[in-house]
Design a protein around this nucleic acid. Structure first.
Length: 443
RNA sequence: GGAGGGAUGGCAGAGCGGACGAUUGCGCGGCUCUUGAAAAGCCGUGGGACCCCGGUCCCCGUGGGUUCGAAUCCCACUCCCUCCGCCA
């Protein structure tokens, strides 16, 4: 959610920043209008309330001095003002609600240094990595035996059974078998262990309340994308970002505690409502998948370094896995609604000759924190002279996948496929697979 | 699922229709005393909105209601605790 004060003070600035992502400036002007009208009603409501409170005190005084006539007259006057107050309050509430509804739909302002552009084609590639690149080896050519899509490799090696997955839950619910399933478990343990030095591991609920989904910006705008359990009012999370962002919802954190960093593995549920028939082969786009997430609450000053840290950690995982990847800076038009700046990590899939998004590392500034009402008390603020220096400030939130497993799984199979059809897995997984690093066809 | 008890400021814990946004204790911050610390004493110490530097309003789990006036009375809901049932 944007700061209404920013819209109040600099509507043109907000409108032009939002125009970079294709939002019509009319919405900003309407917000400013609603805000002004709501405040006018709020002021008259408060004035009426102040008058009623004063009258009530006079009623009490009159009763104490046994002046019942005067008390009755004052009470009648107060009752009359009460009706006016109700009207004003109703108006103020109505307008304020309309403003809130509008603000919940408005996306975040893109960061100044996010590149311009309207869509994915305008994203900026920042760098590439491949095994040996630091020693000056050239980007490797794709070998002929790697030109096999992962769903064929998975079926041939008996590690992926999409037909039976579909039997259980419908299409786009993958079922992994044997080494296929074990590799997912190994990846999760490996990734969590890599982050344990600085990120506290959390196992959050994966069904959450509407407020929890609203805090990250997944509701109300993207309700069609989420699985909803109507009977209990719960939503299946699309990412661990959702419960982690609400972990400290409504709290005021001491600055000394920041940054607070968390990591979590959860299943992620996505309806993929608009994606019917689009690149749905294999496990590249599925309704349920596991993902390890990195998340942080930070001060605005700490946020850029944390953004770098999460990106670096996700990259370190890809490098340990030996997977060719590139880093992309999302342009304003392709940024997620809540994000101010996002780096995507895309891994190369030789079987289909495509780059697959496996991580999205985003800086939300205070957009989510305002929705979730997560603040911090600046150090020394208790001694601060002016009240504005004493006030709690909104934290910044950041997160990134590290990483989303099905696409990594696909890349491991396609990049790791050997001439004999077996798949060679990266050494870093050895401790988690009892040293078994080859997936061979069943006898 | 059934029965009962509870929810007040960072914590503990009063208040049960009128000067209560809230007694008190602890904690925390500042000051005095002290070589320093402790002890003692004094002062201060929730969040938010509006208007603007002086005020006004809102918040005692949440949402309604009664009343001139609600932390206090009524209704619904949520969460926590205890007991029973069921259960991985």
């Amino acid at each position: 959610m944007l700061d209404i004060r920013l819209i109040r003070d600099d509507p043109e600035g907000v409108a032009s920043a939002l125009a970079r992502r294709g939002v019509d400036s009319e919405a900003v002007l309407r917000a400013r209008e609603l805000d002004a009208r709501a405040r006018a009603h709020l002021t008259s409501r408060d004035q009426l309330r102040a008058r009623i409170k004063a009258l009530s005190r006079e009623v009490a005084a009159a009763k104490r001095s046994n002046d019942d006539v005067r008390a009755a007259a004052l009470a009648a006057e107060s009752r009359r003002l009460g009706e006016e107050e109700q009207t004003a309050a109703l108006q103020a509430d109505r307008l304020h609600q309309a403003l809130q509804d509008l603000l919940l739909e408005l996306p975040n302002l893109p960061a100044d240094d996010a590149p311009d552009g309207a869509g994915p084609q305008d994203n900026v590639e920042l760098r590439r990595w491949w095994p040996g690149c630091s020693e000056g080896l050239p980007e490797p050519a794709v070998l002929e035996h790697q030109r096999v899509p992962h769903w064929e490799i998975g079926a041939a090696l008996g590690v992926l059974d999409l037909e039976r997955g579909a039997r259980l839950a419908g299409s786009m619910f993958p079922l992994f078998r044997g080494m296929g399933a074990r590799v997912l478990r190994a990846l999760t343990s490996f990734a969590l262990d890599q982050h344990a030095d600085a990120y506290e591991e959390i196992r959050p609920p994966t069904l959450v309340l509407t407020e929890t989904m609203t805090a990250t910006g997944h509701l109300p705008k993207f309700a069609d994308e989420a699985y909803h359990i109507e009977r209990d009012g719960l939503w299946a999370i699309p990412t661990a970002e959702v419960p982690l962002t609400s972990l400290r919802r409504g709290e005021i954190i001491d600055e000394e505690e920041l940054p607070l960093r968390f990591t979590a593995v959860t299943p992620c549920y996505r309806r993929e409502a608009g994606a019917a028939g689009r690149e749905t082969r294999g496990v590249l786009r599925v309704h349920e998948f596991d993902k390890v997430e990195l998340f942080a609450y930070a001060t605005p000053e700490q946020a850029p370094a944390i953004h770098e840290d999460i990106t670096a950690r996700a990259e370190a995982l890809l490098q340990a896995l030996g997977l060719r990847y590139r880093v992309v800076d999302l342009c304003a038009g392709d940024l997620g609604a809540a994000s101010a700046r996002t780096f995507d990590l895309e891994v190369y899939a030789p079987g289909s000759d495509r780059w697959l998004e496996v991580s999205s590392v985003s800086w939300y500034r205070d957009y989510q924190a305002r929705r979730a009402n997560v603040r911090y008390r600046p150090s020394g603020s208790r001694r601060a002279a002016s009240s504005s220096d004493r006030a709690p400030r909104l934290v910044h939130t950041l997160n990134g996948s590290a990483l989303a497993w099905p696409r990594i799984w696909a890349a491991l199979l396609e990049q790791g496929r050997q001439a004999d059809g077996s798949v060679r897995l990266p050494d870093c997984l050895a401790p988690y697979l009892n040293g078994e690093l080859t997936i061979s066809a069943p006898r």
